[in-house]
Write a protein that binds this DNA or RNA. Structure first.
Lengths: 317, 317
DNA sequence: TAAACTTACGTTGTGCGTAAAAATC
DNA sequence: GATTTTTACGCACAACGTAAGTTTA
């Protein structure tokens, strides 16, 4: 029996879904399934009731969760104690998130942060906003990430995650070079390049499209690419149009290597409605400080992602 | 990181030796080494100070032990809770033992018991007698096995493990058929069959020999065999003499298939000086009761061992 | 030299991802 | 029919045992 299994189990229990837990923990869904299955076989008891809309804890599952929480808490405490003694540069950071940010904002963000800071050992705990807030106050979490309601509380500091503009880009020196505006209707039929399904951008852009009565799946998607640099390349090679966060293409637009087109009547201001919360007056240090600052300036996500010499996984459709 | 690693770590800390921990946990010593090594590498800190006479906890090791105890306690509690819910026939039994019984009496005993009762999940915790006694009173242990001092305490029941006679056996219808007595001196040069080094009998017989100024290693050992049935066979085939617990050869002696020889002036009464301790008035049930009764009648060890259709591992020297 | 731990190596088993299938609404 | 979990399978890595090597008193 494995400590990691407690973490998998806890995440599932918190998000009530194998699939979502897999995304958060950076596993495939079958891997999660098999871990839970082996637990259930070992104890010869069902831990989750499987439904087609998520899963639910059984009685045994509740017990398991209850003890698992305590064991994980002790374990994490131990790890930091040991880390102190070993003079290790490892830093254990406990992040709590509510459902939506936990599913769409955090997973990739933390993945990128870890790649830049291999010494950061980040544990993500998912729960309701009020639970995250409670845990912060009880000092069992270092940083919270919740849906923004801008409520005030003297002992907590809330930082709204800054918004970002999205831009529609086209190749210069093409039929687009003179075009300044197009309608959403037109865009839907144009060859379009997008990020992979699991990406934050795709989720946000899709949500946006839904609000104005469209679906990303109805677009003429010609390519899915998993990193910004390759998307920019593809647009330059006239493969299609793409939607990209402004910070990622700032330089190319200024240098004229890419061409911006306005979506008529649409404001592609991108907002997460996410707040990063810490205890008031607490001075964060080291990687905790770095992570906090990374979280509240989300454009760094795009940049970080661009910097990673990505493996250029691309897939033609 | 693995719960089992906590158990390995704890056992080492308690017996202060990789080798002894390996025997208790039924692993080879290198397996233990590598587990600890991987822990130390992961946390980048030494957990034990290695000395040529055992090992000692470092500062980090002490922290690890402290948390490990708590985590293991929670984990075991959880397992029994889950077992209750699952209606499992698994039974978790917490046995505490002081050093000597923990090293020589318990490991094989429990191994045999488990083979007969696959539903018994037995955790052995090793410490000083007074710690075992304390833990029993605090109800964190079910059964204690300590060196016997027959001290009295109203809240604990102490049961002396019954002694057993050892007999020296020879083939009938051979040069031994008329021999009734030999001296230890003579025995030392006769072809002799013995159990493997790790066996309880060998340990006890060797201890006995030392008290009268001899060593088992000085005997003319022609074969080591890991089970009683095969030893009896070998003696019958005139391979050599052997020392065996009386219950194991009772039938063969009565039927005349084996011949008993007295060791002149020696009393091969075998005593463990071991007491099995439980809380007074507590009524043991199920496998706990079985184990308790198994422990206090150690001749069942020999019998159980004989019953197991052993793999007849034998090794010529 | 004896007792203890470590290293080296071959084997086995576990855990993961990919892909396809089954179940549930 | 779309979403979610399960099954099947191949691969890679981790854990164990055996055997040989090293350390230390």
């Amino acid at each position: 029996m494995n400590i990691e299994q407690f973490e998998i189990f806890r995440t599932i229990a918190q998000v009530k879904s194998f699939t979502r837990a897999a995304k958060i923990l950076n596993f495939t869904q079958p891997a999660i399934s098999s871990q839970i299955k082996s637990l259930e076989q070992y104890y010869n008891v069902e831990l989750f009731e499987r439904g087609s809309s998520g899963v639910k804890l059984t009685e045994a599952g509740k017990k398991f969760y209850e003890y698992g929480e305590k064991i994980l808490a002790l374990f994490q405490e131990m790890e930091s104690e040991i880390a102190k003694i070993s003079g290790s540069t490892k830093e254990f950071i406990r992040v709590g998130a509510s459902n939506s940010p936990g599913n769409y904002f955090l997973p990739q963000t933390i993945k990128f942060f870890k790649e830049k800071h291999p010494n950061a050992y980040i544990r993500v705990n998912i729960g309701h906003s009020f639970e995250i807030i409670e845990a912060l106050k009880e000092r069992t979490l270092d940083i919270g990430v919740v849906e923004g309601d801008m409520s005030n509380s003297s002992d907590l500091e809330r930082h709204k995650v800054s918004s970002n503009k999205l831009v529609l880009i086209a190749p210069p020196n093409s039929k687009w070079s003179k075009v300044k505006n197009i309608t959403v209707e037109q865009l839907m039929s144009e060859p379009f390049i997008t990020r992979e399904e699991e990406s934050t951008l795709r989720y946000l852009f899709n949500s946006y499209l839904k609000t104005i009565g469209y679906k990303l799946d109805d677009m003429n998607i010609v390519m899915e690419i998993t990193n910004w640099e390759a998307i920019k390349e593809a647009v330059m090679r006239n493969v299609g149009l793409a939607i990209i966060p402004y910070p990622v293409v700032e330089r190319e637009l200024k240098e004229g290597k890419l061409h911006e087109i306005n979506l008529e009547g649409e404001n592609l201001q991108l907002s997460w409605d996410v707040e990063v919360v810490i205890r008031s007056g607490e001075i964060l240090t080291g990687l905790k400080k770095e992570l906090f600052e990374f979280l509240i300036s989300p454009h760094t996500i795009w940049k970080a992602e661009a910097e990673l010499v990505a493996k250029n996984k691309m897939r033609f459709i």
